[in-house]
Design a protein around this nucleic acid. Structure first.
Length: 548
RNA sequence: GCGCCAGUAGCUCAGUUGGAUAGAGCAUCAGCCUUCUAAGCUGAGGGUCACAGGUUCGAAUCCUGUCUGGCGUACCA
């Protein structure tokens, strides 16, 4: 039972009874100050304007109309400017806790997305280099959001979109070729102006040399094509191994090139022409964004005959629509922001419901240590890659740090803090709570204490116990909100609060060695806390260690 | 110039579509281990919510303007 929904329904039923339209927007929330009660409603204040009555007066009438079950609600009071505060009977919490224990590893799941399909597109890095911190943020956000949708009952497709055809890939081939020639002794062989300068290009060239010797030194078209493919495979292998370390596995790898081969690009152009949304000018094909309410028209096919990225982007999203998803989520870095309004506008004019596309823009990541920005890895002397970071602090810390801030804010990754294997590190705080519980449960088992299949949890009634129970019960709602808002950070924050509630309970309440019935009830409470922590951590893709 | 994001404690950040006394972690200071993991717990100090107006019962939150930082603003992706 969801307590918030219960109260909300109670109020709405009362509103109908008193002939007030029940569709008014009102909030049921936990008051900051626990003295005010367990849940609080602002409905009287919201209504006061429409009804032209004092909030307190409305609240009084409403309370009379509430159908109260005194087994559930102990007290209803009016306070402040007109808040209606509800206090639950302490007896209901243990009953709800029982449900948590019974649901085990599925506690927290709900069916709000049942029958609906969502496509989450993330990472989507072209195979021209290694993953960096920004990609890591993208990957961790995307994977966590995909997990959240899954927990909310959605059928989730995790997708990676890439382009292995365009200019960038030519550039990759030319960059590798130049390094290759240099390795072959032609020290002054010119490096392409817009080439990829990373050290990894030299590594690829070196691998190429070791494997094929001087076979490609002429640099013919065939040679360059081979080198391009070699480079692509090399990069993908690295990208995949990094993602694997983060335990990220995607379902669909969508190749942009397929849109050209299966005619979807041509069809898109034809359809846009039919709708009179494109025109030719200076030998190029322009998209009439001004007709769609945007400011400037943009080129979608260059005078050279090559498309710009906008064209396949539109075709790709159209393809996703055609695959029948109810929701399309794109996870982009802040540098990709410019194209979004264009793509959405075009989709809308092509007859698709562009409100089904949800674009999440995350801001950049900066790596700092002792307040100073870190650009190069101390260990390798090269620019800092996601792999370097994983080597240094491990996957749990990386995953947690990259989602622990709101998506839209800049993220400062404090390397010093991340390296700290102590109480300063927020990841360990969560994991420690889990390990602590495991250790208590182990000790119980060692001493031959077995959990009663039908525990009397009503014995749990002190504040520390109740606070922990309330926190555990909040998990389900948190999984929903975090998904609805597409903010993994909400879940991360919640888990810290949950861990804190457990640590306080543990500190104040002896579990093993107290009177049998109480011991059993507290062991069950610890078990419920463990389950909740474990489930929460699994959504974040973080391990829940049994020992630390 | 224009667009998007941000500006909250010394630092890094929360603040649940406007609610009661603005919160947390780190840092600082002071306490708590002969009993289940001290990677823990308790307490203290620390604020002009960038600035100025406006909207109303009520604003960190909404509107307008200004300032500061980041990212964009291609016939690159």
């Amino acid at each position: 039972m969801e307590l918030k929904n219960y109260i909300k329904n109670l109020i709405e039923t009362a509103l109908i009874k008193t002939n007030v339209p029940a569709d008014i927007y009102h909030i049921v929330e936990e008051p900051k100050n626990p003295e005010f009660g367990d849940l609080s409603s602002n409905v009287a204040m919201v209504l006061s304007k429409n009804l032209k009555k004092a909030p307190k007066e409305i609240a009084e009438e409403l309370i009379k109309a509430l159908d109260l079950d005194d087994k559930i609600i102990e007290q209803v009071t009016i306070a402040g400017q007109g808040f209606i505060n509800f206090k639950f009977s302490r007896k209901i919490y243990p009953l709800l806790l029982k449900e948590v224990i019974e649901e085990k590893e599925s506690y927290g799941k709900n069916n709000s997305g049942k029958g609906k399909r969502v496509n989450v597109e993330y990472v989507s890095v072209n195979p021209t280099g290694l993953l960096h911190l920004g990609h890591g943020r993208n990957a961790c956000i995307g994977d966590t959001i995909a997990n959240l949708f899954s927990w909310n009952g959605w059928d989730v497709t995790r997708e990676y979109y890439f382009n292995n055809a365009g200019n960038q890939m030519k550039n990759l081939a030319l960059s590798i070729f130049a390094r290759y020639k240099q390795l072959l002794g032609d020290k002054d062989f010119p490096f392409p102006e817009d080439g990829y300068h990373g050290e990894y290009i030299k590594t690829i060239a070196n691998d190429l040399l070791e494997k094929y010797n001087s076979k490609f030194q002429n640099g013919s078209d065939d040679d360059l094509n081979f080198i391009r493919k070699f480079g692509e495979n090399w990069c993908f292998e690295k990208i995949n191994s990094t993602l694997e370390r983060l335990n990220i596995k995607q379902d669909v790898f969508f190749n942009e090139d397929s849109l050209y081969h299966n005619g979807k690009i041509d069809k898109l152009i034809a359809d846009l022409k039919k709708l009179d949304l494109v025109y030719e000018k200076d030998g190029a094909l322009w998209l009439s964004l001004s007709k769609m309410g945007l400011k400037d028209d943009r080129v979608i096919v260059k005078s050279s005959g090559e498309p710009t990225y906008r064209l396949p982007d539109i075709a790709y999203h159209r393809d996703k629509f055609e695959r029948g998803f109810d929701l399309l989520i794109d996870i982009f870095g802040a540098d990709h922001i410019a194209t979004i309004p264009d793509v959405l506008a075009a989709l809308k004019y092509l007859g698709y419901d562009s409100s089904k596309v949800r674009v999440l823009i995350h801001q950049f990541v900066t790596l700092t240590e002792n307040g100073e920005q870190v650009k190069m890895s101390k260990r390798t002397g090269k620019s800092y890659t996601l792999d370097d970071l994983l080597d240094e602090v491990g996957e749990d810390v990386v995953r947690f740090f990259l989602i622990m801030r709101g998506i839209s804010t800049h993220l400062e990754f404090d390397l010093g803090l991340a390296r700290e294997q102590s109480e300063k590190n927020p990841v360990f705080y969560l994991q420690y709570a889990h390990a602590r519980i495991c250790s208590v449960l182990d000790l119980a088992e060692e001493r031959g204490i077995y959990l009663d299949w039908n525990p009397d949890l009503t014995i749990l009634e002190n504040n520390y116990e109740i606070e922990l129970i309330k926190k555990i019960l909040k998990f389900k709602e948190t999984v929903w909100i975090s998904c609805d808002k597409c903010e993994p950070q909400i879940l991360a924050d919640y888990l810290r609060e949950l861990a804190n509630a457990f640590h306080v309970f543990y500190h104040e309440c002896r579990i093993i060695g107290v009177e049998d019935k109480l011991q059993d009830a507290r062991l069950h409470l610890a078990l419920a806390a463990k389950t909740t922590l474990q489930n929460g951590l699994s959504i974040l893709g973080i391990n829940a260690p049994e020992r630390m």
